[in-house]
């Protein structure tokens, strides 16, 4: 288990470093990167122009920039945003509570609905058919449209995120629960007259635990993608909205900081979910 943990941590760090490097490289090779609108300002003195060019020169060598950036990041310094002219870490920290609250509430709502309805569809197959049609319809609606509808109805933004995440989670959970309910060991338990609640808990929900944990990790990715749309369309000042603003303004330090931050969030959640699933599997098999 210790080896698995160590390997996962190392893989996570490599993935994270590669993610940040890819983002920085992308920005560096983007058309127009070398042009700074401030240089066109005729009021700027020669000294100011020189300073702007010096700032740019530090970012032109991508390897040097990224190496310097990573050293700073390890000490908690994610650089200075070029658009907002404030430290990136401060900007992210300021907006983080909004996004964490949105993602937390959205995920809780989506998972609660998904698990409850998936279980209901296994217990009452007739309900399952109706729910399948409902989720097929919901899967056909883009998250952006959900955000627009939330904006128009002035509903809670977290409900929008929950609605956007629910159909896929429901499909996964229902598939897993149905597979367990139809398994030979579950049918044998049922024919021996096991009470319904115990049957569901022990033979339908419990074996699905590790797979559901793995999906929980992946659902954080989906939640962040949804948060970008919901925060932008519903004008919620969170990290998702900041990510879009950083991309549109080509703010290199902010964008790399955002990518590293979001990458760290999703990679660590995925790793944690995966390790928990493996831990449960190992505990069950007695190894």
């Amino acid at each position: 288990m210790r080896n698995v943990l160590l390997r996962r941590i190392i893989t996570s760090f490599i993935t994270l470093a590669l993610t940040g490097f890819a983002a920085a490289t992308l920005l560096r090779v983007a058309p127009g990167f070398d042009v700074d609108a401030r240089e066109l300002d005729s009021r700027a003195s020669a000294e100011t122009q020189q300073q702007i060019r010096a700032e740019r020169a530090g970012e032109s060598d991508i390897l040097a920039f990224y190496g310097r950036y990573l050293r700073g990041a390890l000490q908690g310094d994610l650089g200075q945003s070029r658009t907002y002219e404030v430290p990136v870490a401060g900007l992210i920290g300021e907006r983080l509570p909004v996004t964490l609250r949105l993602i937390g509430l959205g995920l809780t709502g989506a998972w609660t609905f998904a698990l409850a309805l998936a279980l209901a569809s296994v217990v009452w197959p007739a309900v399952g058919t109706g729910l399948n049609l409902l989720t097929a319809g919901m899967l056909a609606i883009p998250a952006g449209l959900v955000a627009l509808l939330i904006l128009l109805s002035q509903g809670p933004v977290a409900l929008g995120l929950a609605l956007a995440l629910f159909p896929r989670l429901f499909s996964y959970a229902r598939g897993l629960f149905q597979q367990n309910a139809d398994a030979g060991f579950a049918l044998a338990a049922r024919t021996r007259g096991l009470a319904s609640a115990r049957f569901l808990g022990r033979y339908v929900i419990w074996p699905a635990g590790p797979s559901l944990l793995a999906i929980l990790g992946l659902s954080v990715n989906g939640a962040f993608g949804g948060a970008i749309l919901l925060e932008t369309i519903c004008d919620l000042p969170g990290v998702g909205q900041l990510a879009l603003q950083a991309a549109l303004a080509r703010d290199l330090p902010l964008l790399v900081g955002m990518t590293l931050f979001v990458g760290a969030l999703t990679v660590s959640t995925n790793a944690l979910a995966e390790l928990s699933a493996q831990f449960i599997l190992r505990t069950r098999s007695g190894h």
Binding site: T15, L18, T19, A22, A23, L26, L27, A30, P31, L218, N221, G222, F224, G225, I228, L229, A243, L244, A247, L248, R250, L255, M258, T259, V262, G263, T266, V267, N270
Partner: peptide, 17 residues
């Protein structure tokens, strides 16, 4: 790497540059 980062973040970043 592609799966661990939200694909929508990658999409808007690449499209915006």
């Amino acid at each position: 790497l592609m799966i661990s980062v939200p694909i929508f973040l990658v999409l808007i970043t690449v499209r915006a540059v």
